[in-house]
Nucleic acid binder design. Sequence first.
DNA 1: TTGTATGCGTTATCAG
DNA 2: CTGATAACGCATACAA
Lengths: 334, 334
Amino acid sequence: MDIYDIAKKSGYSTATVSRVINNSKNVSDKARRIIEEIIKESGYKPNRVARSLAKKSTQLIGIMVPDIRGYFESQSAYELEKILTDKGYTTILCVTTDELSRKLAYLDVLIENQVEAIIGVGSTYEEDKFYKELSELSNDIPTALLNVVSRDRVDSIVNVYIDEADAMDKTVGLLHKSSCKKILYISLDTGFTSRSYLAKKAGFMEALDKYYGSIDFHEFKIKDFDKDFDKLIIFLKENPTFDAIQFELDSLAVVAYKYLAKEGFKVPEDLALIGFDNIQATNYTNQAITSVDQRISDQVNIAVDNLMKLLENDDSANTNIVLKAKLVEKETTI
Amino acid sequence: MDIYDIAKKSGYSTATVSRVINNSKNVSDKARRIIEEIIKESGYKPNRVARSLAKKSTQLIGIMVPDIRGYFESQSAYELEKILTDKGYTTILCVTTDELSRKLAYLDVLIENQVEAIIGVGSTYEEDKFYKELSELSNDIPTALLNVVSRDRVDSIVNVYIDEADAMDKTVGLLHKSSCKKILYISLDTGFTSRSYLAKKAGFMEALDKYYGSIDFHEFKIKDFDKDFDKLIIFLKENPTFDAIQFELDSLAVVAYKYLAKEGFKVPEDLALIGFDNIQATNYTNQAITSVDQRISDQVNIAVDNLMKLLENDDSANTNIVLKAKLVEKETTI
DNA sequence: TTGTATGCGTTATCAG
DNA sequence: CTGATAACGCATACAA
């Protein structure tokens, strides 16, 4: 069942059928009525592959995430898919992992499938080699990245990300206001240092300086989830002057919370806690954990808006957008 | 840059170039060497749209989920994407919501994009009208559904799901062994009754009969998360004979846990708790919640295996696969 | 307003 | 082993 069949049955040519399908203006009401009727009763569905080839336009957009199971990624993918679908696009999902080779391989897949734009979610796409590849590609295919900001920024890539320094200013400010004296910084040791890791840490130190007048910085790294939290407890007992913890990530905070609660630490009186990401699980710990909301929905909307401008060669496209995060105070801070 | 350019530069015809690209046997080593060299240095990437049209095969598979943010959905999508990519397919992601009209609309999108198979994740696809549509479609496009089992099953759709009755037998069995006397069943009131809801409930009742010799069934429904948990607490205080709760879903259990803990219920001594799904958050509550693992990875692998058989017209394809769930004992049961 | 004919980039058939 | 050429299903200039 193709356009020729419809043409034959209707008595019109394929050209007219095509015009009807594409809502072209230059079709008589009569022709439109007849053809639409036949299309409906025959259940004909246009072949987008053929259409894409003919129009040199696929209406396909590729979404890349390192791991769709994460909070930021799945939430972003959800919002992206919704908004892009409303705009008439179909989305190809790529779960690239953090491996360079796989990320590059997926880029090929997207190119070969003639996607009209690419959207990457997560700081893994900041990686130099990959970003360089993406930069070149972005001259042909409009690209947007969420939660990514590269050192060598490119005007052909829409970068949207959170102002980590500002976020840390807010969290440290809150702890300071609550009379906390000494804050421990707990981070995840992934083996490589991402920009977001550095930005948060730098912002945290700046904030220390601003609110406390000095940079009394102490970092505790978690590498092995099975062992390092026990070590953390020991560390905190040996260093009871710490009365607050800023976590790099909620995924660390939710686990740490259980260890702390079990050991009888009084939260937030003796020990205030602040996470980062505002994942769901922060609401399921015994006390809901204060955290930083990255405004994913806003990030997505802004990214797509500007990506669309890039697609339309609209010069007003903004390619470097920084958003202020939102501090969400819950039960682990005063 | 297309196959003609490569042909021209290499001195061979497009036919030979195409053969090289597709690793055809009938090409001289010399031709292959020359052409591959030119392809590499020119950075040529084949156009899959054109190829799909010519081959009448897109290597595209559509994945439908009601909401990619859920645990079961995102975990399934992750596994599916991984395994399908390894097999050379590209995946189109559809976040359909539960709305019938959107589900049907997405079906059209997939058809128009000429996907070679469709995989749906979640019991929303059991809905009669949608399932009927899918049944017809499945004659043309092989289909697999995860966590779905329809009343009017069709041989052209691979159904993979968990044996809820068996799962409930395991959980009630555990509670019985732990000397629990009276179990409350807590479910989510979504407005419509899904098969999985009924299956769990029926299985629960069967198990009551088996272990306790009678069906002393009490159900507490949660509709409004803001109010109904308070009501639950009141209910439990007025009915202190309940010494265990079986939740239909972990998403209910993790929230309930906090209310119970706050009210001083001793878990598991006075009140044992068991959830369903084994979502991550069950490990972040103060006591990790005992739950039922649906073996998503296994479901995915089996579904894809049989879907592939359907694609190859292999008669040995199994279209109705029931898996036994795994009880994961944690801290809310003895 | 409608139809004819050609092109989109690739594959595949059939000769050579 | 290689090349010319006709599909694949649709869109669109150009003609009528």
